[in-house]
Simulated assay, not measured.
Amino acid sequence: MGNKATNTNKQIQILSGRGLTLDFPEAKVKEFLLDIGYYRLGFYWHHFEIDDDHNFAPDSKLSDVIGLYYLDVDLRNILLKYLNRIEIHFRTKVIYYVSNKFKDFPAWFADDAIVNNSFIQSTPFKTSMLNRVYTPEFINNNKTLKKHHQNNPQDTYAPAWKVLEFFTFGVLLNLFKNIKDTDIKKRVTESMGILNIDKFENLMSAVVLIRNICSHGDVLYDFNTPRGLSVIPGIDFVNSDRNSLNACLKVIAYFLKHISENREKDFINDIETIFKENSKNAVIEKIIKEKIKYQ
């Protein structure tokens, strides 16, 4: 589209000129453009483009672009439900095991005898994760923490079981990685079905990444992990595929199984249902198999 805003009439002209079949009435096409947006839809019709001039492959249809968009939306909504379950479970295990190991240090996440100093202490060149997160705004935005500091003005930090509830999934995992006591970390990872701490952190990092994509409404269908997923017993990565979205779905199912077998079954059923429904469209079916790599 270049660097100048255009109206829907111009956008329709551009898409038609590049070879996209607009197989809806013009009013409906404009509705899509004003509802979803030309730029956001571009993330999805990009799949159908064949050159740097953004021309479309023969027989490319707007209905297929819209179908791909809504597959992505529905997938994100399903994943958020189950990723939330994993996040809460992981948060609870970290709080429980570490807090009970270090009962005399309620704010153990800020103690450099327990957590690597790089997480806690800023340097002249870098603000630590803790200092970026635990700010006056962070306290004021969370009623529990605000009340704690009002009632305990001498405390620099509230206890972990209050604070960690408000850490993002990513910050929580970062904190976990920086815990020094490997025995207590093993208690957490083993409770979630993984014996090796490094492999747990690798797989959970992928889960956090998928969670962030879903939360921010980013494109999901063509996702590939920047690093290969760790191999563990219990996860069958088909054809050694350890990067695709489907590989990540297997990791999510594995964690759910060690939280609740019923939730794992629900997740698998929900994923199978959405892919089966969308596979009625041959174009979308091909994307599901070749991009998502779901078989």
Rank of each mutant, 00 (worst) to 15 (best):
N224I: 10
D266H: 12
E264M: 14
Y96V: 09
I95K: 07
P25F: 10
N246M: 04
L195N: 15
G2C: 11
S191Q: 07
Y134E: 10
E137A: 10
D218H: 10
F176H: 13
S205A: 15
L34D: 12
D104Q: 15
N224D: 09
E87L: 04
T168E: 11
N3V: 11
N142C: 09
L75T: 07
F138L: 06
I287Q: 00
T123N: 05
V115L: 05
V73W: 01
G67H: 02
V133M: 14
K103S: 13
T123E: 11
D270E: 15
K162I: 08
L33V: 07
Y97H: 12
V208Y: 02
F125W: 06
D218C: 05
L256H: 04
K143C: 06
G19M: 12
I184R: 06
K257H: 10
A158M: 14
P226V: 09
S63L: 11
W108K: 10
I179M: 04
K147A: 08
L229T: 08
I259F: 03
T189K: 05
N9P: 01
D23V: 08
V251Y: 00
N117A: 14
V208S: 03
I184C: 07
F223P: 02
K4D: 14
L130V: 09
H149S: 12
I274E: 01
T182W: 00
Q11G: 02
K186A: 09
K180Y: 04
A158D: 13
N117L: 14
D222N: 15
Y82M: 07
R18I: 06
V283N: 06
H46V: 03
D35N: 14
V231Q: 15
G19H: 06
M1C: 11
K286G: 05
F43G: 10
A158G: 05
C214F: 01
K10D: 12
K4H: 15
S63N: 10
H54R: 04
Q150E: 13
S240R: 07
N9I: 07
